[in-house]
Every structure is written in structure tokens, then in C-alpha cells.
């Protein structure tokens, strides 16, 4: 079987399109590359969904943590502490367990025991908590002068937030937030590994890498392939975030821009 044929058969295998059965014997390198790559669809899906939704919850939580309102502040603090303070591995366990229990309560929760929704929710909460902590730190380090200048211009409430607080916060948080995005994509490998069941042998990249390691009894081929895919993914994340970061800072003078890039941040 030619490699093109393999790609046609297995390229979308992880989402249920193409050949129903996985290869059983005579594993070729091409098959390993194709199927592990096909599994990457899930890793990218989980990462994007969680990041996109988590961005907004994170801002809300960061504002909540800095809020003067006692209940709001405590709620945000506890949410952040719970999800930042426990391993994702254990969060997946409890999420799956509670979704199973909730299923008995109402059929609304039926889809939550599937990875596509349930795991996405866990990753969403998880990344929200981590990003919120980064945003909160950035909020606290907004230069006082910026806010005073906003006051002097007569900006208040939503306007002040939209035009001064939010953009500055984002700029300050960006290096840390980039790292969080990288970690989140890496964390997606845990979904089928420990948390949620794989249906019809449709799993993520690690699931297929494990499948091949298990069938060929040789971990030295599939895992490096997986590593290669993830290095590529990480590089793309860095490129995209770097591009956004440069746009956020484009009004700054050259020297100051360079300073932003130097900020030693590693969040999570």
C-alpha cells in the first residue's frame, strides 16, 4: 500500500472518517506518521476550544480576584486555587466521576462523559485558572501613571477598562500567557491517557503513539514521532503568539519593545 493511500485511509481516522480498522500488522513508518498526525486533530481541537473560551473566563476571574466585593473575590480566589493547586490528572478523574453521577440526574449531562465535551470543559476551567493568575499579576503591575493619566482624561468605568486597563494588562501578561498556551497544548495529551475513554479507537496523538508502541513493542519510533509533531505545534504557537504580542506592543518605541520580550516569565 502506497503512502498516499495510507494518508487517504487514515488521515482523518481520529474523527471517524476513513478506514474503520486500525492496521494490525506490518506497521510502516508512513502509517505511524499518518495516524499520530491524525490524532493531533484532537490535541489542536482541545487546545483551541479551551484557550478561546478560557480567555474570557480568565479575565473575569482576574478582575474578580482584584475586586473589592468580598464574595466575588473569595469565589475567584478559590476557583483559581483549586484548579492551579491540583494536578490535571486528578481533575480529569473527578470530572469524569462527577459527570457520570450527573448523568443519572438529568440526560442533559449525557454528552459530558464523552471526551469532546467533558474533557474540553475540564481543560477550559484549568486554563482559565492559570491564565487568570497571570492576568491578575499583570493587573497589579499596571503602572500607576497610566491609570492616573486615564483619570486625567476623564475616562471612567468601562471606558477606562476598555482603553487603558485591558490593553496594558494584556501586554504585560503576554509572555506568561504564551507559556500557558504551550503548556495547555501539552496537557491535552492527558485526555485519553487517563481521563476519558476512547470510542471506536478514535483518540489523540498520544493514544495512537501508545497503540503503535504497544503493537510493535518498540517505544523508540512512535514517541519521537509524537515529540516531533508537538515541537512543530509548539513552534506554531510561539509564532502566532509572537505575532499578536508584537501587534500589542507596536506603539511602543523599539527599545521598550525589546524590553517586553525580555521579561522573564514562565507561568503555570
Amino acid at each position: 500500500m502506497s503512502c498516499t493511500q495510507t494518508i487517504l485511509d487514515y488521515g482523518l481516522r481520529s474523527i471517524g472518517i476513513g478506514e474503520r480498522l486500525l492496521p494490525r500488522s506490518d506497521f510502516t513508518l508512513c502509517q505511524q506518521f499518518t495516524l499520530i498526525g491524525s490524532g493531533m486533530i484532537w490535541n489542536v481541537y482541545f487546545g483551541l476550544i479551551a484557550l478561546a473560551a478560557g480567555f474570557f473566563l480568565a479575565i473575569a476571574l482576574a478582575l474578580g480576584k482584584g475586586s473589592r466585593h468580598f464574595v466575588l473575590r473569595k469565589l475567584s480566589e478559590w476557583f483559581i486555587f483549586l484548579f492551579r493547586g491540583s494536578p490535571l490528572f486528578i481533575q480529569f478523574f473527578f470530572a469524569y466521576f462527577s459527570f457520570l453521577a450527573l448523568k443519572g440526574v438529568s440526560p442533559v449531562f449525557n454528552p459530558f462523559t464523552s471526551a469532546w465535551l467533558g474533557a474540553a470543559v475540564v481543560l477550559f476551567f484549568n486554563t482559565s485558572a492559570y491564565s487568570a493568575e497571570i492576568f491578575h499579576g499583570a493587573l497589579k503591575s499596571i503602572p500607576k501613571g497610566d491609570l492616573e493619566a486615564a483619570d486625567a482624561y476623564g475616562l471612567a468605568g468601562w471606558h477606562r477598562f476598555r482603553r487603558v486597563t485591558f490593553p496594558t494588562m494584556l501586554r504585560l501578561a503576554w509572555p506568561g500567557y504564551t507559556n500557558e498556551a504551550i503548556f495547555l497544548f501539552h496537557a491535552t495529551t492527558l485526555v485519553f491517557f487517563s481521563g476519558f475513554p476512547a470510542w471506536q479507537q478514535r483518540g489523540d496523538a498520544l493514544y495512537y503513539a501508545k497503540y503503535f508502541a504497544d503493537k510493535t513493542f518498540n517505544p523508540f519510533v512512535p514517541y519521537p514521532i509524537l515529540a516531533m509533531y508537538f515541537i512543530m505545534l509548539t513552534l506554531s504557537v510561539i509564532a502566532v503568539y509572537g505575532w499578536i504580542g508584537r501587534r500589542l506592543n507596536r506603539h511602543l518605541p523599539q527599545e521598550a519593545r525589546r524590553h517586553f520580550r525580555r521579561l522573564p516569565r514562565l507561568a503555570r
Binding site: L22, L100, S194, P197, A198
Partner: peptide, 28 residues
């Protein structure tokens, strides 16, 4: 697991035998 995958039934895979039993109990 390999047998079910070939038989045409819907296969749900879990990491441990304990979880497979749990899945049947929970109706998964």
C-alpha cells in the same frame, strides 16, 4: 479490545479493568 474493534460492535476503551466494569455499572 482488538477483538471488539474487528467485530463491528462499538468499542469503548478504558485504561484499567476496574474502569471497564465501572462503565457498565454506570450505563456508559
Amino acid at each position: 479490545a482488538a477483538f471488539v474493534a474487528e467485530s463491528g460492535a462499538m468499542l469503548v476503551e478504558f485504561a484499567t479493568p476496574e474502569e471497564t466494569i465501572g462503565a457498565v455499572r454506570a450505563g456508559e
